[in-house]
């Protein structure tokens, strides 16, 4: 668990604080995304958590321990760190790059070797061929994977990720995001994730922290933020397709009608209750129908109608007065 208590940071030579009295908490096992325009302080906050920057005032604790009481180098070895530029050491092989933190921690050689192989497999790289290559021989996507593997090497409970998928093309980015979410399902790391891309934030985050000009504007789950944006800044940040984004995050069971009978041939027009409404909508459009049956396993539990979707979006995403 990471706790920030009224953290401010003013860089020398400036009057305006880069981070202004920000407090929040990141619970264990969650992905918390810091999102906002450039210069909003998101990277500075991230870098204060592993003491690459020192706050001007306020207190940061990691698992109850004030980080100012820890040796910065020792602290950083327990926190994975991934940056957009990746920063692989060009003179070391991929294996050597991934073993960097375990080496700093003086792990035995055999343990390091086994761990490196395990990690490369985990991030979808072939240890036999990629392990002995040098960074300049890898593609952008491969390098990003190595960056993530290197950060996870010593199995840190906390990871700080600063636009980790920012340097690859959109197709590879989506692929890396999906893979990472799949990994996270069983790794359950506590992750602070910085991005300026609201779509990435909504997709990756268990919680969003929205920042502007050093201030914390809003925090909450992606659905909370989408349905109840705190102000015009957040509304703007969310973009013109807020309703569609909500559909992607709302489960079918939330909007379904439990009491209606389902008139169609059930085989072709069913959807699982946990699927996002977006998928139900796709099915309706494809089949040219107005309702789909919602089921839990084999059993039909309700009906989701086009009207109820429309009404829901109209209700939650109407323009604020």
């Amino acid at each position: 668990m990471i706790t920030l208590d009224r953290i401010s940071k003013t860089f020398p030579g400036t009057d305006i604080p880069a981070v202004d009295r920000v407090s929040f908490q990141v619970n264990a096992g969650n992905i918390c995304v810091f999102v906002g325009p450039s210069g909003c302080g998101k990277t500075t906050i991230l870098r204060m958590i592993n003491r690459l920057e020192e706050p001007s005032s306020g207190r940061i604790t990691v698992n109850g321990q004030d980080i100012m009481s820890l040796d910065p180098a020792v602290l950083r070895r327990t926190i994975g760190y991934v940056i957009q530029q990746i920063g692989l050491l060009p003179h070391k092989t991929i294996e050597q790059n991934v073993s960097l933190v375990p080496e700093l921690l003086n792990w035995p050689k055999s343990k390091i070797k086994a761990r490196v192989t395990e990690l490369l497999v985990l991030v979808g790289l072939d240890p036999g061929t990629v392990g002995r290559k040098y960074p300049h021989q890898l593609s952008g996507g491969q390098s990003q994977r190595v960056g993530v593997a290197r950060a996870m090497a010593a199995d840190p409970p906390i990871m700080l990720m600063d636009e980790p998928f920012g340097a690859v093309d959109p197709i590879v980015r989506i692929h890396l995001q999906d893979e990472f979410l799949r990994l996270q399902q069983h790794l359950k790391k506590t992750i602070c994730f910085v991005t300026h891309d609201i779509n990435e934030a909504v997709k990756m985050g268990d919680y969003l922290i929205i920042l502007n000009m050093g201030r914390l504007i809003q925090m909450g789950t992606p659905l909370e933020v989408l349905t109840e944006p705190a102000d015009d800044f957040v509304l703007n940040l969310l973009g013109d397709d807020r309703g569609v984004k909500i559909l992607d995050l709302t489960r079918c069971e939330t909007l379904m009608d439990r009491d209606r009978n389902f008139p169609y041939n059930p085989d072709s027009c069913l959807i699982q209750s946990v699927k996002p409404v977006k998928i139900a909508l796709e099915l309706m459009m494809k089949k040219n129908i107005d309702q789909v049956g919602v089921c839990k396993g084999e059993r039909i539990v309700g009906v989701l109608t086009w009207n109820s979707i429309k009404e829901h979006i109209s209700r939650v995403s109407r323009d604020r007065p």
């Binding site: 180098a73 020792v74 327990t78 940056i83 530029q85 060009p90």
Partner: peptide, 27 residues
């Protein structure tokens, strides 16, 4: 030496002398 390589080294917990001997000098 690339700033981000050193920054990554620092962020992973290398001390200044480790950065000098393991990153800056070899590079």
């Amino acid at each position: 030496v690339d700033y981000f390589v050193m920054e990554a080294g620092k962020g992973m917990g290398m001390t200044p002398s480790q950065i000098l001997f393991r990153i800056q000098i070899p590079m």
